[in-house]
């Protein structure tokens, strides 16, 4: 955590100095007033400046990074963890060797890590941010694979006029299939079954 001490004629001025030194917004700082200013004689002699200690607040993104770093250490995988945080989202990218182990079959390990990170970081007091975990562009590649699969199977269903039921997928992946065939003139899609075995069905219109 970065901490600075700064001083100024007033407390506000001291805080402004700290903001300038740390280069972050005032809202992202914890401010502790060390010394109140004392006005000297004629405002010149014997006066004392205000002094504050400012530290950058720990964010949920910081917590996410710390949680994942320790989790990966326990699993025995080394990775560089990049965190990008916005008001409602924490995007995390992992880089290193052996990322395949962290992805798992059809991304199930990646999804589990993402879910646990979200649980560890979010709580009632601090509010909720969506955690999106990725490595080696797995999410985008998987999305492209699913889109291609949808188009291919859509074509097959239109040709054979026989419905096709896909393998079980999570809600996010099912949505990709639905969206890919949304404006198709020949086939429609719907889901059936209960999670975690809920699957998309492609049928003729």
């Amino acid at each position: 955590m970065k901490v600075v001490e700064s001083s100024g004629k007033t407390v506000d001025e001291a805080i402004l100095m700290a903001v300038a030194q740390l280069g972050v917004q005032r809202d992202n700082l914890d401010i502790e007033i060390l010394e109140e200013p004392v006005k000297g004689l004629f405002g010149i002699i014997g006066g004392k400046d205000a002094k504050v200690r400012a530290s950058i607040k720990r964010t949920m993104g910081d917590d996410a990074k710390e949680f994942l770093t320790e989790l990966l250490t326990h699993i025995g995988v080394e990775a560089i963890i990049d965190v990008n945080e916005s008001d409602d989202r924490i995007s995390i990218d992992m880089k290193g060797r052996g990322m395949g182990l962290l992805i798992g079959h059809r991304g199930e390990t990646l999804d589990a890590l993402q879910y646990l990170t979200s649980l560890a970081v979010n709580n009632e007091e601090r509010g909720y941010k969506r955690v999106a975990l990725d490595t080696e562009n797995y999410r985008r590649k998987r999305e492209e694979t699913l889109k291609r699969l949808a188009k291919r199977l859509g074509y097959k269903v239109a040709k054979t006029r026989k419905r096709i039921s896909l393998e079980p997928m999570n809600p996010f992946e099912r949505r990709i299939i639905h969206t890919a065939l949304q404006s198709d003139s020949y086939v429609r899609t719907y889901s059936e079954g209960e999670d975690p075995y809920r699957r998309v069905v492609i049928a003729v219109k």
Binding site: L71, V77, G98, G104, T109, L119
Partner: peptide, 25 residues
């Protein structure tokens, strides 16, 4: 409830991560 979750979803995530670590060992 915090380690099991609705329909065992959290327990399942824990097991999935442990399984990945076990593969390594």
């Amino acid at each position: 409830g915090k380690v099991i979750g609705k329909q065992g979803r959290i327990a399942k995530a824990i097991r999935t991560v442990v399984k990945a670590a076990a593969v390594k060992e």
